[in-house]
């Protein structure tokens, strides 16, 4: 009798646990959906190649061993324009310490992007995602969104929205190779 009692207890515990886990998992998934469905902190950053304004190809995996400050932006986006000069200043500080900036423009014309880079005197490489395929791969929304990728090629942090110069310096410090 004691045996069946124990068996029943185990079966009931098992059924209730499985159901509870299924429900919690579903709710968790629904709650985090739309924000970053595929990518999260700790995931490997999907590789891509894009061409910059000088016609040079930039492949993410070529920067392994360096920290990559991956910024998605557009010329019409005011917060993007605001943080770019600060990014440029920090780029000057960190570029010799193994931190690279890749600024990915979302499908605008070369003319607009070049004009923007000239106007703000930006030195870091700016690439244009003409087909929005990198934007899709990273599920970017809204602009600006910045991903910090550590020297191992893993996502260290995802920043949605504008950053101050202090933030930028702090983030770059985070992904600086030892």
């Amino acid at each position: 009798m004691a045996q069946t009692k124990q068996k029943r207890f185990l079966i009931r515990t098992l059924i209730l646990t499985v159901l509870a886990v299924a429900i919690i998992y579903t709710i968790y998934n629904n709650a985090t959906k739309d924000k970053f469905e595929v990518l999260g902190v700790g995931d490997e950053a999907p590789d891509f190649t894009l061409v910059d304004l000088n016609g040079e190809e930039h492949r993410l995996s070529d920067y392994k061993g360096q920290g990559v400050f991956l910024n998605f932006w557009g010329t019409w986006c005011k917060p993007c324009a605001k943080e770019m000069p600060a990014m440029d200043r920090q780029y000057e500080v960190f570029k010799d310490q193994g931190v690279q900036i890749l600024a990915v423009n979302i499908a605008q014309s070369n003319f607009e992007v070049e004009r923007f880079a000239d106007q703000y005197g930006l030195d870091f490489p700016i690439v244009i995602d003409k087909t929005k395929s990198v934007m899709e791969a990273y599920n970017i929304d809204p602009l600006p969104t910045t991903l910090l990728i550590n020297p191992d090629g893993e996502i260290e942090k995802i920043v949605r929205g504008e950053m101050t110069e202090q933030d930028i310096a702090l983030f770059m410090e985070q992904i600086r190779p030892e």
Partner: peptide, 13 residues
């Protein structure tokens, strides 16, 4: 979603 989940548990149990 919790309510729907509880309905599911109720149905099974």
């Amino acid at each position: 979603q919790t309510l729907i989940g509880m309905l599911g548990i109720s149905l099974i149990v």
